[in-house]
Design a protein around this nucleic acid. Structure first.
Lengths: 340, 340
DNA sequence: TTGTAAGCGTTATCAT
DNA sequence: ATGATAACGCTTACAA
């Protein structure tokens, strides 16, 4: 039983007494086929359990695999998972399969994944670039007409299509929300400086809001950490300042969780908090967490549609950027008044 | 520039003045090649920017795609995302690519995804089966030697390898934990009855624990809901009973969140709670949530290793089942004493 | 309406 | 150490 050769088109053809081409015609609704022949072919297909070999088809037909390669930093992260889900939802109805790999945020893994995808001759490439990367090596591919779209962050060293959140505007809105509730000293808790595109943008939004309100920028109110624990520590430092903030803006979900934990540990229910990126349990926290929510599914679908439009021949001479707007969700923590 | 044909092995060969087969030898470290020839080939490869075509290779070499097809219910769900990450971490070092699709928990989508994967001639199939499915149609594939492994839930209508959490034992442990803290009336909040394998197993664990403690089973203490809101409502009903439970066991994370929300809304800090499956913010809740944590990454890696071992020729005559143990994490909510 | 021949880009086999 | 030829399973182009 094991290793039994799979039936091929030729096997089906032999069974019916026709040629492979005729079977192909039936299966692809190509060219004219006699009704009776069609029926006999279909029956032989069922009888033999024949399944067309997509590999062979792809190879002959386009020299391109009917697949889209997607690189994300991490599969277990619901943000990127939802992005991937968005991509799949637009790509599958077009008959394209999704091939996914995770880079663990390292440029090396990202590059090796991309190499694999290119070797497979995927029809399109979608990349959430890792921080340290350089994408110049993809210029030739892009020039040769391969649709390449970057997600969540733009490419480095190369002008290419990309779809990102409205980071700057979203952060501005979140901070403006705190300002509107009377806060004048607002701490910023973000990733390690300058490394990440999103951190830079959101930081700009923070400054935009302050400037629009005519408030001075105080470097002492800016703290960073690369994970939840570090963010907690950052919050502790902020609250220990001589002139501490009455509100916090957490620039990503690790920072948000770190801030929530730090405030809970310190039993500080008087510090306002707005986080960038929504959390599953946000409404259960005390107080419920006010957030600037992103729309990861929309990032995925928009990027996938961009790839499809390139595939359909939309010229890709000029790189285009798409911004997916964020949405402020007021739940309580961002509406607390200043404590002093 | 667009549509420029990619260099093939033949192009490289022509450039060097040899045959395609020689280039193939160099690239695959196959057979003997003169040192000088090898160098000239490598240089031509660089010069032309040649990249081997994996599709063609796969087709010729094994009639199998060097890929593993994985079906999960939902990409945005961190549980399944982490499972997928576990699979990838095992499969990639072996040179296999991961192809993923989500079924949205519907048997139709699952089946169509599987069909696509089979048509691509993947080397292995990994499926988190959706509730309503029937997998008899896969028996022939399995008999023909295709490695097929089910994750998180077993197959229906067919004996096949599967890797699942220790649902029953984990639930037993969680409930026993509550019993050890003095509770005698423990409510069970789960999915809709009987539909889902995991719900059945965990319910059995609940009963095991009661039985071991010599406590009677009270049907009134069992409630169900298919999402967070329904679970909340279920908890409200339980607490309104004439002789209400002093503790709750939530059999999945939706139920856990629903229970947390319901207790918070009712300002009931006196009801103990143990949830099945960990939550990101569990330690931030008040009180911090005690859980029976699963190990989704381990489920993924174990299942992937099973596929690889089958691929390496381990006979698959008998289906094997692997249980990944759970781990009780006591954080506070499960250690509350009975309120009366 | 159906068949024939050729080819997609590799690698296996057998020669040289 | 290298080459010639065929083959993998399918589709395109053309012929019958």
């Amino acid at each position: 039983m094991v290793g039994m050769r799979r039936p091929t088109m030729a096997d089906v053809a032999r069974e019916v007494g026709v040629t492979a081409k005729t079977v192909s015609r039936v299966l692809n609704d190509d060219g004219p086929v006699a009704v009776e022949t069609r029926e006999r072919v279909m029956e032989a297909v069922r009888k033999l359990g024949y399944q067309p070999n997509l590999m062979a088809r792809n190879m002959r037909v386009g020299a391109r695999d009917a697949a889209i390669g997607l690189v994300i930093p991490e599969m277990g992260n619901p943000f990127f998972g939802t992005v991937a889900g968005g991509v799949e939802s637009v790509v599958r109805p077009r008959g394209l399969t999704l091939i996914v790999g995770s880079s663990s945020e390292t440029a090396e893994l990202e590059r090796s994944l991309v190499a694999t995808f290119l070797a497979r001759r995927v029809s399109g490439l979608m990349i959430v670039p890792s921080a340290a990367g350089d994408h110049r090596y993809l210029r030739a591919e892009r020039a040769a007409g391969l649709p390449i779209v970057f997600l969540d962050r733009p490419a480095v060293g190369m002008a290419a299509d990309h779809v990102v959140s409205g980071n700057r505007e979203g952060a501005r809105q979140g901070v403006a929300h705190l300002l509107a509730h009377g806060h004048r000293r607002i701490g910023f808790v973000g990733d390690l400086p300058a490394v990440l595109y999103t951190r830079r943008e959101r930081f700009q939004g923070y400054r935009d809001a302050l400037e629009a309100a005519g408030l001075p920028f105080d470097r002492a109110l800016v703290e960073s950490g690369h994970d939840q624990e570090a963010a907690s520590a950052a919050v502790v430092r902020l609250l220990a300042l001589p002139d501490p903030p009455t509100a916090l803006f957490a620039a990503n979900n690790f920072a948000s969780m770190g801030a929530v934990v730090a405030l809970a540990r310190a039993r500080r229910r008087d510090v306002a908090l707005v986080g960038f990126d929504d959390l599953p349990l946000a409404e259960v926290l005390e107080p419920p967490l006010t957030v600037v929510a992103q729309d990861p599914a929309a990032i995925g679908t928009a990027a996938a549609e961009l790839v499809l439009s390139r595939l359909d021949g939309r010229p890709s001479r000029a790189a285009c950027r798409e911004q997916i707007p964020t949405r402020l969700i007021a739940r309580g923590s961002g509406e607390l008044p200043p404590s002093r």
